[in-house]
Simulated scan of single mutants.
Amino acid sequence: MSNPLLRPDDPRFRKQQISQADGANPYAEGDGVLEAEADAASTRDKNSFAAPASSGGRPFVPQYEVTADHRAGLLLILTSITILASGVAWLTATSFMLVGWLLPLIGIVPSIAVVFLAADDLRTMRLGARDPAGRTLTLLALWLSAFTTITILTATGLMIYWGISILPPGFL
Rank of each mutant, 00 (worst) to 15 (best):
V114E: 02
G32K: 07
G23Y: 07
P62C: 02
S48W: 08
T148S: 14
A141T: 06
A40E: 13
A41L: 11
L142W: 01
P104N: 07
R7Y: 08
F147N: 04
L102H: 05
D45T: 08
A85T: 04
A155Q: 00
G128Q: 01
R126H: 09
F60E: 01
T149C: 11
G73M: 10
Y161H: 12
V33H: 10
L98F: 10
K46F: 09
I77S: 12
I18E: 06
V88W: 03
M125T: 05
T94V: 10
S145N: 03
E37F: 14
G56S: 13
G23R: 04
A129Y: 12
D69N: 11
A89E: 02
T136V: 11
A146V: 07
G170M: 02
A141Q: 02
T136N: 15
T138W: 04
A118F: 04
L98M: 13
F96C: 02
P11V: 05
S55Y: 10
G157T: 10
R12A: 15
Q20H: 08
L6A: 12
A155E: 03
T148P: 00
T148L: 02
S42N: 11
R135K: 12
A51C: 05
G100W: 04
S80F: 08
D31G: 08
A72C: 04
L117D: 02
W101A: 02
G30P: 00
F96A: 14
S54Y: 09
A118R: 03
K46V: 09
V99F: 09
R123I: 06
D10L: 08
P8Q: 13
D121F: 04
G157D: 05
A68M: 10
T43C: 04
G100V: 00
A41K: 11
E35I: 11
W90I: 10
A133F: 07
E29P: 03
G170D: 07
I18F: 12
S42E: 15
R135F: 01
L91V: 07
T79R: 00
L6M: 11
L139R: 12
G32F: 11
L172G: 08
A119H: 05
I152Q: 03
A113E: 03
S54T: 07
G163T: 04
G157P: 03
I18C: 06
L105V: 07
A85R: 00
I83M: 14
A53C: 00
R44L: 05
A129G: 13
L142P: 01
L78A: 15
Q63A: 10
A51G: 09
E65T: 12
G30D: 06
A53W: 01
S2V: 09
A28D: 15
I83L: 14
R123S: 13
A28E: 13
L91C: 06
T43F: 08
V109T: 09
Y64D: 02
F96G: 11
P4T: 10
F116Y: 14
P169I: 03
P52F: 08
